[in-house]
Amino acid sequence: MLEENKLISDDNIARTKDLLACLERGDENGAREVLDELTRIRETELYQEMGKLTRELHDSLTAFGKDDQLINLAQEEIPDARSRLRYVIKMTDDAAHRTLTAVEESMPICEDVTGKSSDLHEKWRRFVQRDMNVQEFRELSLLIDKFLEGNTDQVKELRNKLNEILMAQDFQDLTSQIIKRVIGLVEEVEDNLVNLVKLAGGTIKVDFEKTKNDHSIEATGPAVPGVDDHVVSGQDEVDELLSSLGF
């Protein structure tokens, strides 16, 4: 603080003595003048302090705005996270439809098998009770033969549908990996916002952490179309790449 801003100073003592003298001799105008002078000095001091604080806040905010991490978060990571989350929606949507389609296609097969089984069961019961003529028995034999023949194919078909449902569940692993990555980003944003709040409070010095840029060998999870570079587009490209390496 500057020397002239000190409360206990020779100038202020002299001014206060003047004020007392004016009051004692009933000089109202003189007293007001001294009081105005004292107020002006006090206000100047306040403005100087406010100016200093404003400058500090401005400098800190400028420094904060220039921080690579925050710019990177706003310009790259957040839009990137949006694309990743949209991809999660697409994957869960695809998985649900794959499952529903397989279930819808399985239902008629089950109904067909159940219908034919109960029809045959009914006829078989009549045969056991000897309530069936030779012609009807011939027809029943043909029906049983046809049923058993078709049954193998239908069970195979059902098995394929069940397999389809099984494979559709792979979305859980893949979407979780993407969501975990976005959670990491949210935490990073949170840290930065906390820093900003502390900064606005003006009481705690902000310590910027350096952005980690080395992701080269880190596992990055499922590639998102249109977001990730240098990735293969599917199994065929993996096979091509491996065969070029002598596999």
């Binding site: 494979m167 792979d170 979305f171 692993d173 893949l174 990996q177 080269s216 060998i217 596992a219 990055t220 999870g221 499922p222 590639a223 990730d228 240098h230 990735v231 293969v232 599917g234 199994q235 993996v238 790449l241 491996l242 390496l245 596999f247």
Partner: peptide
């Protein structure tokens, strides 16, 4: 789910026998 070219190369160099990318 890792499908960066450098990762596939790294796995090959480390001696992997096969590499399948998810979803498969």
């Amino acid at each position: 789910a890792e499908q960066k070219r450098e990762q596939i190369v790294e796995a090959a160099e480390a001696g992997v026998n096969g590499y399948i990318v998810k979803p498969f």
